[in-house]
Design a protein around this nucleic acid. Structure first.
Lengths: 133, 133
DNA sequence: CTAAGTGTATCAATACATTTAATACACTTA
DNA sequence: TAAGTGTATTAAATGTATTGATACACTTAG
């Protein structure tokens, strides 16, 4: 399900946190579904269980998962986190657009890119198309 | 001109690189203008000259500045770097928009944000307004 | 109940990158 | 010549990540 990138300068535990954070926020993993056990994921990634434990404890502290001793770790259903993720994603767009404007990229280019990504050619609201998540 | 953020987890030298990179790419610093000397900037930021030296050598290696022994470090004029920066900024926008779409944000919201940032209400090309860099 | 699988908590040791500190040397300019 | 510049080197201190090895408590399956 996930992989470690040794070219990535970030710590291993942080990479694990990041991967699962995305999987959960993008609702690839359903609420209450079980994560791999500390030891099994450690085996799979060929790293020590301690590192996985650290990743899981961070995920739990941030509210992405909940832990049941003796049973395992499970995806928590947290609507506020999902909503926070949405607003964060919009902020990211704004930040990127600001940066693009600051280097002189014309508005037209940006608009074209947005339209292309959303697959439409009009500015209508009813752009409810199928999403290839 | 620049500042160190000790809450930032990244290394000091990398922060210095990042700040000057932006100043140069956004053309706040003109080509051939002189950067602070290794020792003076170290004094100003209350860190060791070694760290500044490392930052400057990275900036030079990447082509953002050039060095003259005994004289100092100067901003280099590198059009390809500026162009690369523009395309990178556009890529950043696309990446952010993709992420926004993937969490269900409607196209309309994105378009409104872009229009607001560019200060216009129309979709015309001639949106050559003054930029508050 | 027992065994296996689970999370949790420690500790020691190692490895690595960052940063500091202290020099020393070569070059340029006033 | 003196002061300011970049450059190079070495040593030490620091923080963090990671590993390895245990040990303990809990839950589930048999």
């Amino acid at each position: 399900m996930i992989a470690i990138d040794y070219k990535d300068r970030r710590p291993l535990y942080e990479q694990v946190v990041e991967r699962y954070r995305e999987l959960i926020l993008n609702q690839v993993l359903e609420p209450d579904s079980k994560l791999p056990s500390v030891r099994s994921l450690a085996m799979e990634l060929s790293i020590t269980p301690n590192t996985i434990q650290r990743a899981y404890s961070e995920l739990e502290k941030a509210g992405y998962i909940y832990t049941v001793k003796g049973r395992g770790n499970f995806v928590s259903s947290n609507d506020s986190l999902l909503e926070l993720n949405r607003t964060q994603k919009l902020e990211d767009v704004k930040t990127a657009v600001h940066a693009a404007k600051s280097v002189g990229l014309p508005q037209k280019i940006i608009l074209e890119a947005v339209e292309f990504i959303y697959g439409g050619a009009t500015y209508d609201t009813n752009s409810e198309r199928q999403q290839t998540v």
